[in-house]
Amino acid sequence: MAEKVIKKSDHYEVEPWRMTGYIHQQVMNDAAIQKIMQDKMMYLTWMHKQEAGRCLPGYTKEELES
């Protein structure tokens, strides 16, 4: 990995000193981090369920030639 990161309870965080130049970190506790992780997994799982069960058909020969 190119950047040094901090690994905390199953997720990665940027080293805080890297967030002191342009954009600063906001006040955020572990519960807020956990909520983001929960939302992310829920959303990706939901998206997967929407899309993984079907395969979009490609163009037919007639459609391509029309």
């Binding site: 990161v5 997720h11 990665y12 965080e13 940027v14 805080p16 967030m19 954009i23 600063h24 970190q25 906001q26 955020m28 981090i33 983001i36 992780m37 939302d39 992310k40 959303y43």
Partner: peptide
């Protein structure tokens, strides 16, 4: 928020 908030500790609020 969703794909970077927990990494950078910066989210849309």
């Amino acid at each position: 928020t969703m794909f970077g908030g927990d990494f950078y500790r910066v989210t849309t609020t």
